[in-house]
């Protein structure tokens, strides 16, 4: 009886906790949705209403009418995807070396890579802009290249940690079978850490997707290359100083949903990883 009560209480507590966290994480998104669905008049009403009295799709319509926003979606996808793939590739090479090999200067290499991203973005912007101008690159490659400044240290460090955690026996077994180092990498290491790669990639993707300051500067003279955050910063009312709160909220939702869908697609991989990822030690 006592044990049973404790079990039930534990269950209740568990679900309560999940519910609370769920509300905390989801509420602002709910509020953005509600605000986007209100008419402008209802939006500025005091006290505010918890649910829209009349649904208005005006804000969403305005977002989809905005060409630069739609174009931004495409640009952002290209940029973020390229950055992610490159960072994962380069990062997993480095992670393999740093996590599984023995060589001199390992610690300095780790810290040097981390040091890339230890300055605030605003501090390196002027220098980076000078580099980009010297290389004379168009906006999209510029963004892809410069975003590595923050995605690469992240992928390198995370993958190093994951690779290091893999049991040695597996790699030794491969070596005994006659595989060289690179074969071990492609055939053993990468498949085994696939869930970790997906997670790391997803986090890096979103970091690149959300970047604003570099994008604003590099696309300033190439409006067709603008990414979503820049397009949204250029979102404005009909008149200077007017802030179209409803439209900004609507745009935020339109941008977030594809990402969540992306996660749902990749989720199978993560779930697979959870079950299969329990590596035989």
């Amino acid at each position: 009886m006592n044990k049973k009560t404790r079990l039930v209480l534990g269950q209740v507590f568990f679900w309560l906790l999940i519910t609370l966290i769920f509300i905390y994480l989801m509420f602002p998104f709910y509020w953005a949705t509600v605000s986007a669905l209100k008419t402008e008049q209802e939006l500025i009403q005091t006290p505010t209403s918890y649910f829209p009295k009349e649904l208005s799709l005006q804000n969403f319509a305005a977002v989809f009418r905005n060409d630069s926003f739609l174009r931004g979606l495409l640009n952002s996808t290209i940029v973020a995807l390229s950055v992610t793939v490159l960072s994962l590739l380069i990062g997993s090479f480095a992670g393999y070396a740093l996590g599984k090999m023995r060589f001199r200067g390992k610690s300095p290499s780790m810290y040097l890579i981390l040091a890339m991203t230890m300055f605030p973005q605003i501090a390196v912007l002027a220098g980076l802009y000078a580099v980009i101008r010297t290389l004379n690159l168009p906006a999209i490659p510029s963004m892809i290249l410069s975003y590595m400044i923050f995605t690469l240290p992240f992928t390198v460090w995370v993958l190093t940690a994951f690779f290091k955690g893999l049991p040695v026996s597996l790699l030794q077994a491969a070596q005994v079978d006659g595989a060289d180092m690179m074969q071990t990498f492609w055939q053993i290491l990468l498949p085994l850490t696939a869930p970790a790669l997906v997670t790391t990639g997803l986090l890096a993707f979103i970091q690149a997707w959300n970047e604003y300051l570099f994008a604003l500067t590099f696309t300033s003279i190439e409006p067709t290359a603008r990414t979503v955050p820049v397009a949204m910063a250029l979102f404005s009312g009909e008149i200077a100083r007017q802030e179209p709160v409803g439209e900004i909220m609507a745009a935020a939702i339109v941008v977030t949903i594809p990402l969540v869908v992306l996660v749902l697609i990749f989720q199978n991989r993560i779930v697979d990883g959870l079950t299969a990822g329990a590596v035989k030690g």
């Binding site: 989801m26 949204m232 709160v245 969540v260 996660v263």
Partner: peptide
């Protein structure tokens, strides 16, 4: 599954906009 996707929403919302929300 839903929880896992929902959990990502805050991180996915563009930073400049989430501050506005």
């Amino acid at each position: 599954g839903v929880m896992r996707a929902a959990m990502l929403v805050p991180w996915a919302i563009i930073t400049v906009v989430s501050a506005r929300i």
